[in-house]
């Protein structure tokens, strides 16, 4: 479940990420009635088994069975909202991305675990981009194809990849080799690499998101500055 909005008096229109059909819109009729069987099961993040009918853009929900109950609190909740906004903004309805469902599910479960939330977010962002066809080049230098060296500095250029700093000056974002390697291997041992990757992902995502900023990110910023 990614998002829900009210429709008429008692119904909801759901934005759902499915395993086999991509992101779809589903109408849950009467979901807000006190005795609806859907009640309490259609909140964001929850993993459900859904039955639906209809062939058009908007399906009609016929049955729900909850598989995984997700309870995010505080910062985890903001992170979850960020994930959902990212998915809604970057994917097209009915586009199938095979592995995206698994990536999303493990990201939500990781948010509930002890793992630092930043790591979960970076890994998900990387996987999301790969599944959308915007996969990042992280292991080799763009021009020469030589493996990335941990202690060298690179300029990351969005449509290309890491370029040795001497070659290009202003274009792209400056990042150290070991940060690229950490993102590639999805294991962040140094806080410095993690924060470099945060700026890298923000830089790259901004290109694909266009002019409108992510609202949940703005929410984070106001919280951290308070």
């Amino acid at each position: 479940m990614l998002h829900q909005k009210a429709y008429r008096e008692t119904s909801l229109i759901l934005d759902v990420l499915t395993q086999d059909y991509g992101r779809i819109g589903v109408l849950a009729k009467g979901a807000k009635r006190p005795k609806s069987p859907f009640r309490g099961r259609l909140q964001p993040f929850v993993c459900n088994l859904l039955n639906w009918s209809g062939k058009g853009q908007l399906k009609t929900l016929t049955a729900v069975d909850t598989l995984t109950h997700i309870n995010l609190q505080g910062t985890q909740l903001y992170c979850g909202m960020y994930l959902n906004e990212l998915v809604v903004r970057l994917t097209q309805p009915d586009d199938q991305h095979e592995a995206l469902f698994a990536s999303y599910q493990s990201a939500v479960l990781n948010l509930m675990s002890e793992l630092p939330v930043e790591v979960t977010l970076r890994v998900f962002e990387k996987q999301l981009l790969r599944q959308l066809g915007y996969g990042l080049l992280l292991d080799v230098e763009y021009h020469t194809g030589t493996p990335v060296e941990p202690n060298l500095w690179y300029q990351y250029i969005v449509s290309k990849g890491p370029v040795r700093s001497q070659v290009v000056n202003d274009e792209g974002l400056r990042i150290q080799g070991k940060a690229l390697m950490a993102l590639e291997g999805e294991s962040f041992s140094e806080p410095d690499s993690l924060s470099q990757c945060k700026y890298l992902m923000r830089y790259i995502l901004d290109v694909y998101l266009g002019h409108e900023p992510l609202n949940s990110r703005a929410l984070f910023q106001t919280i951290s500055t308070r």
């Binding site: 990614l2 998002h3 909005k5 909202m81 959902n84 809604v88 992510l214 949940s216 929410l219 106001t222």
Partner: peptide, 10 residues
Amino acid sequence: HLSPIDGIGP
């Protein structure tokens, strides 16, 4: 309520 997806922030 806060709902970043709908553009409602603090």
